[in-house]
Design a protein around this nucleic acid. Sequence first.
DNA 1: TTAAACTTTCAGAAAATTTTGAAAGTTTAA
DNA 2: TTAAACTTTCAAAATTTTCTGAAAGTTTAA
Lengths: 168, 168
Amino acid sequence: MELKEAKEKFIAAWGAFGTQWGINRTMAQIHALLLISEEPLSSEEIMNQLNISRGNVNMNVRELLSWGIVHKVLKLGERKEFFTAEKDIYKTAIQIMKERRKRELVPVLDLLADLEEVQIENDASGHFKMVMSEIYSFGQNTNKMLDKMVKADEHWFTGSLMKFLVKR
Amino acid sequence: MELKEAKEKFIAAWGAFGTQWGINRTMAQIHALLLISEEPLSSEEIMNQLNISRGNVNMNVRELLSWGIVHKVLKLGERKEFFTAEKDIYKTAIQIMKERRKRELVPVLDLLADLEEVQIENDASGHFKMVMSEIYSFGQNTNKMLDKMVKADEHWFTGSLMKFLVKR
DNA sequence: TTAAACTTTCAGAAAATTTTGAAAGTTTAA
DNA sequence: TTAAACTTTCAAAATTTTCTGAAAGTTTAA
């Protein structure tokens, strides 16, 4: 396989997977492109390589920055901003966990805490409370687990946690 | 808070979260409704409670069945099919992990295995191969980890794994 | 059989999301 | 200053996803 062909395959596939993972195609493609680009790229270069508009690049790069998996790079003597993806895949994974925890898990826990205040009126509300409290306690455990993972040193994944999980 | 109000809040919220989790609103709402319904519900009842069409119910219930987190229930002496959600939230979580592993992780690993076959032509392809192999090895580790989780007894989450993750 | 009860399908409509590109805004060099 | 280089915004257009509901298909009881 040629390098160019392989790169194109990777970008296309990462984009398609992205939509399954709940992020949009272009955002995933930009991420893929930056991952395989050794040097940081400018908006212009991203536009050209992926054949997308300036606005689209701007919007999705900002989103990737907000996820903390793409960084802004300033080159000496250049006006333009350049962008590069975090190349350490473990750091990237941790960063994504962190963000998803914040954006998705925490709001669910807040909701469940609220809903547990429902009055027990009859058997039906007994069932409801039980479901809420099961989900809540599961969510709290997951939350704690993610917290440990995120706070652990950056090589937790290859360290004792990974050994515990994989080797036993 | 009234039970009815709390139920509506839960269904609405679960639906909204669902879209963030990468599944569609209605599918998540049906799941929420079935979770808090003590008795299995028919398509008719789901239609009425969520104000959605017959086709929509059929499609999304089938999807939930294919995820293995909703089950078909036949009542003696009834023609209709009824549906109920898996109430054990740990089982549900494991089932979702299993499916996501199959649908999302395995295809990525297959792709990466392919792409690692790219020829080393120059420094640029060296970088590409390195990124591919890092992602591949991360994916394999994740895969093994999920495999252990899925194969562990159904209370892994509250058992030694959870203790290891949370208590240390 | 047959017809009522129920489930599935799917083309078109509706809704939601994503993308474009031109205009407005900002920064910097001279 | 100012004007070129660059970034951001956002309304409208394009695309994708989801939903509807009527028609077709299937199952069951009698």
